[in-house]
Structures are given as structure tokens and as C-alpha cells.
Design a protein around this nucleic acid. Structure first.
Lengths: 130, 130
DNA sequence: CTTGACCTTCTAGTGGCTGGAACACCCATA
DNA sequence: TATGGGTGTTCCAGCCACTAGAAGGTCAAG
């Protein structure tokens, strides 16, 4: 399989796959022409990583998860701890964004948004700067 | 005012303030010793930016907002449009993170997280990779 | 034989800082 | 007057996870 096929299969851009090779997440073989030759295992790994990334795991988490996945004797506790940390990080981020959304949407609602120059949004920004 | 005072007043790290000068958001005067000498307007601007950043506006948005703020004749519609775009971006990000949270928390709950090697989290990652 | 899709490597840029080195300066105390 | 600690300065490098783009090699169809 060439990189384009893998990109289609995994949904990852080819650039990203090359980057993942660069940082050592996968190590595809090379054909005589210098093209990357991806095997089934490479494809599996990349799908695994794509899924983990979509769940919010960092690249380093993914590296860890891959090695845990390959270690048939690992305890599920390790994986769960990693997942819980990730979940907590996601939840903090959500809370932060919800805070922003609340404040900003209140301002947007109060701003009439027409041709007049007075604007509650700028007033809020400036007032807090006082 | 020296940079340290401004950092205390605005809550921004001194490094960040230097960076803001670098990219042209503020242009403090310089004293004879080469130290930045911040005036009241600089302080106001930095507080304005800090507030705008905390509401999720990008640096480029902040630049725009500052110039809109300085333009006494600008229409509030421009500001509102910028704020609405920012709000939409925040809402998309929240939705994405909530999606992650849902999927990941379901997995975390199903994982017993003890010494046994079977782990629904890894199984999910691998299964989708099939 | 040409076209066009694909592949390669490489450098550099994104956003918004942050860390650290190496040096200058200011002020209070001994 | 020495000195020591807390400030300030510049500059370069690094973070994360890619992404853009240039310059070129390869392959299959018509």
C-alpha cells in the first residue's frame, strides 16, 4: 500500500502520516522506488492512533497506548489512568470554553450590531481595562 | 512603570508583554537605562487585550478590536461580527470536546482498571482499527 | 511520448507563547 | 564601598501537531 491508499483508509492526510513516521509512531518498509510500503500492521497502527487522537489523546499518549497494546501482560489500570487524565483535561478545557461562551454570548446579545458607534462589547473590554 | 509592575497589574507574564510588543500590539517608550517605560495608555491596552484573549479572541482579533476601539466612528456591527465568529468557533470547539468526552467517558466507565490485562479502552481503539 | 496523478525530501511557517542563557542595572544593607 | 538579590535587557530555541510549498522522481493510461 502506498501512502495515498493509507490516507484514504485512515482518513489521515498523507502529510500527517509522514509526520507520524518522522516521530517514530510507525515505520513502514520502503519499496525499490523509495515509496513507503505500508503493511497491514502499519495500517492498523495508524487507525489506532487516528482513533485515539480523535478521543483527545496526545501523541505521547498514543505512543504509550500503542506500547501498552503490544504488551499482552499490561494491566488495564495503566490505560485507565491515562484515559482518566485525558478526560480530566478535556473537561477542564470544556469548562474554560463554556466560561468564555457565557461571557461572550452575553455581550453579543447586548450589542445591537448596526451602524451606530456605541458597542457594549468594546465597552466591556475597555471597562475591565480601567 | 516597569514591565514587572505592568505584569502585576494586568496578570500577564512579562514574557508575554514583551511578545506583545514584538508583534506590535503595544509600543511602550524606553527609559534612559533601556527599560520599557509603560504609560497609562499602554496599561489600558494590555488590560484590554488580556480581557479579549480571556474571552477567546485571537491575537489578530485583538489587533482589530484595538483599532476599532480607537476609531470613534466605527460601526458596532463590525465588532459584533467578530464576536459572533469567535463565539461560533468556541461553540464548535465545545461540541468537538463534548463528543470526545462522551466517547472517552463511556470507555473509562467500562474499564475495570485493575491488574487484569483485558481493557475495553484498548479494545475499542483496536477494533475501530480493524 | 506526454500528461497528470502520485510519490519523495527538504525547509519553514502556524499560534501564542515559554524557557533559558548571558549580561546590565538598581537599590538596600554591612 | 562592596555586594548581593531582584529586577531588567536581548536573543535563540523549543513547545504541539501538524501544514504549506518548492523542487524533483515515478508510474500508468492514452
Amino acid at each position: 500500500m502506498n501512502i495515498g491508499d493509507v490516507a484514504r483508509e485512515t482518513g489521515l492526510p498523507a502529510k500527517t502520516i509522514r509526520y507520524y513516521e518522522d516521530i517514530g509512531l510507525v515505520a513502514p518498509a520502503r519499496g525499490a522506488n523509495g515509496y513507503r510500503a505500508f503493511g497491514d500492521m502499519d495500517l492498523q497502527k495508524l487507525k489506532f492512533v487516528a482513533r485515539a487522537r480523535s478521543l483527545g489523546f496526545s501523541i505521547e499518549d498514543c505512543r504509550m497506548l500503542l506500547s501498552l497494546y503490544e504488551d499482552r501482560t499490561r494491566a488495564s489500570g495503566e490505560v485507565k489512568a491515562l484515559a482518566r487524565d485525558t478526560l480530566a483535561r478535556i473537561e477542564r478545557k470544556i469548562a474554560e470554553l463554556e466560561q468564555m461562551r457565557g461571557a461572550l454570548s452575553a455581550l453579543v446579545e447586548r450589542c445591537h450590531g448596526d451602524d451606530r458607534p456605541d458597542c457594549p462589547i468594546l465597552e466591556d473590554l475597555a471597562e475591565i481595562a480601567r
